[in-house]
Design a protein around this nucleic acid. Structure first.
Ligand SMILES: [Mn+2]
Ligand SMILES: [Mn+2]
Ligand SMILES: [Zn+2]
Ligand SMILES: [Zn+2]
Lengths: 137, 137
DNA sequence: TATAATTTTGTAACAATTTCAAATATGATA
DNA sequence: TATCATATTTGAAATTGTTACAAAATTATA
């Protein structure tokens, strides 16, 4: 998505594109780093000095309600956000802390014992050591 | 596992089987309800009036370190615990809040783009509506 | 028994998040 | 443009879940 299209995208999803909302969404699609609220706030408050952390909380919560971001709970002490809403997995490296995306075959999961349940969201999380950290230590 | 075997099981995993630790582990294997710290505390404080919530925190953290419980982060506002350490998935019903176990084929995930990474833990979480809630509403 | 080590307990500290009301910005109406 | 209504942002205070810590209690050792 291009920066110019963000306001339109928000509108199409029932969100009024205020300046702060556009800037938060822009941060997500530009960086793709699965940031926490604090990471978004610290990255933007330099350019938007009046920005409140409450606004970042409100904005990301609104985005999640409108389903234009995914909430990532791979770690119990931090909530991360992702503007890529397609089905994909997340790998968190226990050494460097980076969160990687990966693809997997949802159809082949062959899920048993919860037939007849309605699936709304699927999250696959893997923790371990990334290739880069394995080589450098 | 039988109640009588808990102390032995804790010992075999490097944990001194204090009264509180045995009772917390007993709760987990008897109920299999993926409880939060608060649920364990409220369930036990009636029978163990001197029990401190700090002890429940300490105990479950110790169990997790010694790998006799799994930490479940299916929701961002609650940490749940599971004494079943086998690989299995968790489904949380958005209506009744119950967390169900399910089996899946880990081998068939066909994970791409993170080749060469070391996998330490895999968590598969699904959220939706359970069969029971679908029928009753 | 005396002593040392471990565990439990309760309070205080801490950090993340939510609540809330005032201030600000935006949009509509006249 | 001026006025009014609505929506959004802001910052402080409140709340919540968790951790740190030191004293008290328990258990193990000599
Ligand atoms: Mn992602
Ligand atoms: Mn389970
Ligand atoms: Zn790494
Ligand atoms: Zn249900």
């Amino acid at each position: 998505m291009k920066i110019e299209d963000i306001a339109e995208y928000l509108k199409n999803n029932g969100i009024k594109p205020s300046y702060q909302r556009v800037r938060v969404f822009e941060y997500l699609i530009k960086n793709k780093n699965h940031p926490t609220v604090d990471m978004v706030f610290r990255a933007l408050v330099g350019e938007i000095p009046t920005l409140s952390k409450t606004t970042v909380y409100n904005t990301l919560k609104l985005f999640a309600e409108k389903n234009i971001v995914i909430v990532i709970n791979i770690e119990d002490n931090e909530i991360r956000y992702d503007a890529d809403t397609s089905v994909h997995g997340h790998f968190k490296c226990e050494k460097c802390g980076k969160v990687y995306d990966f693809q997997f075959d949802e159809e082949n999961l062959n899920i048993k014992t919860i037939e007849g349940f309605d699936f709304r969201q699927t999250h696959l999380y893997i923790k371990g050591i990334c290739k880069n950290c394995k080589m450098n230590y």
